[in-house]
């Protein structure tokens, strides 16, 4: 009995220690912190709570410094190759970068082949770059809670945190819940993004990127089509950047600037507060399912309840608030 308590106490200390190191910008703590966040056992959940507490806005004295960027688009659009070039560009500017690559495949076996990492060239000896692959798993739609928490864990220790997800029509909404800036990546000659934009199925992203600019005419045509669709939607301000990720890379500096510009105008505090609330909701729904949500009076009610909480509360505390309310109502 005593043994077990001391073990639990030790993990709490470990987690708090990891959190403290992250808060101080110690990047070597990041992999272990990510392992802790992904751990769904009860002990693991306790560790995650202790960790997140250490990097809450209250502990940090404000929102984490990172620029949180979502990069999303159809399969094979060139997202990972683009990240290869972007990572290099950010490193040249002295910014540390973490990439969370989310694999969409959902298989009966439960396993996944995580292949994005292979496409993101970087110097393995450079500790300013971290890449972590995760499987979206069986969860349909939406980012899994561990991914949302992973973003929060990395935000104090890296200057740029990127989430790469696959899809069109829903994936940009998901990453928008988590990130400050959303870049949708389109390859020339594929009409789905254009159609989705026109039909209003897809929200207008903060930045549109056309990849494979080296293909020439098709890339120019894609750019024209997207620009005119944006005009028709009254969003002519949305930057459209054409890039080429294969050597010699082009358009990358322009894209870095477009992303920076958006970061300059976004209300970071509001974005992060909302991200935490939505993460709490996702976590609650994962733990307690539909019936849990019903006990709260539905998603909308749950969100209202969250909005009534202090803006600086970390996710586990928000989840606790939901659980308390569910117990009272149910």
């Amino acid at each position: 009995m005593r043994d077990r308590r001391s073990a639990a106490a030790r993990t709490a200390v470990d987690a708090a220690e990891l959190g403290r190191r992250l808060r101080e910008g110690d990047r070597t703590a990041a992999p272990a912190a990510l392992n802790a966040i992904e751990d769904r056992s009860q002990a693991g959940r306790d560790r995650a709570r202790a960790l997140l507490h250490e990097i809450s806005p209250a502990a940090l004295g404000g929102e984490a410094r990172a620029h949180l960027i979502g990069v999303t688009g159809p399969p094979g659009a060139g997202k990972s190759s683009l990240l290869s070039a972007l990572v290099a560009a950010w490193r040249e500017r002295g910014r540390s970068v973490a990439v969370l690559a989310v694999d969409p495949s959902s298989r009966r076996s439960g396993g996944a082949l995580l292949g994005d990492r292979a496409r993101i060239e970087h110097d393995p000896r450079d500790d300013g770059v971290l890449i972590r692959s995760t499987a979206a798993g069986s969860r349909l739609g939406g980012l899994a809670p561990p991914t949302r928490e992973a973003v929060q864990v990395l935000a104090p220790a890296y200057e740029v945190v990127v989430v790469e997800t696959v899809g069109v029509g829903q994936s940009e909404t998901d990453v928008a819940e988590v990130c400050d800036t959303v870049a949708v990546v389109v390859q020339p000659g594929s009409g789905d993004v254009l159609q989705f934009l026109k039909a209003g199925i897809m929200e207008i992203p903060d930045v549109l990127v056309i990849t494979k600019g080296d293909l020439g005419d098709v890339a120019r045509r894609a750019r024209r089509d997207l620009a005119s669709a944006l005009r028709a939607l009254g969003a002519r301000e949305t930057p459209v950047v054409t890039v080429s990720s294969i050597p010699p890379p082009t358009g990358i500096d322009e894209l870095v600037q477009a992303l920076d510009a958006h970061r300059g105008v976004v209300d970071v505090k509001a974005a992060r507060t909302s991200a935490r609330r939505l993460a709490a909701l996702a976590e609650f729904a994962t733990e307690h399912g539909e019936s849990g949500l019903r006990a709260l009076g539905g998603r909308r009610e749950a969100l209202l309840l969250l909005e009534a909480q202090d803006a600086g509360l970390e996710v586990p505390r928000l989840v606790e608030a939901l659980e308390r309310a569910a117990r009272q109502d149910g």
């Binding site: 992904e38 396993g111 082949l113 292979a118 000896r125 972590r132 692959s133």
Partner: peptide, 24 residues
């Protein structure tokens, strides 16, 4: 049923180590 990280061929030992750590 495992999650598998496979980066292809020609990896330096330092890259393998970095990947193992980063990917947990």
């Amino acid at each position: 049923g495992m999650d598998v990280v496979y980066e292809g061929i020609r990896l330096t030992p330092s890259r393998i180590a970095a990947t193992a750590v980063q990917e947990g």
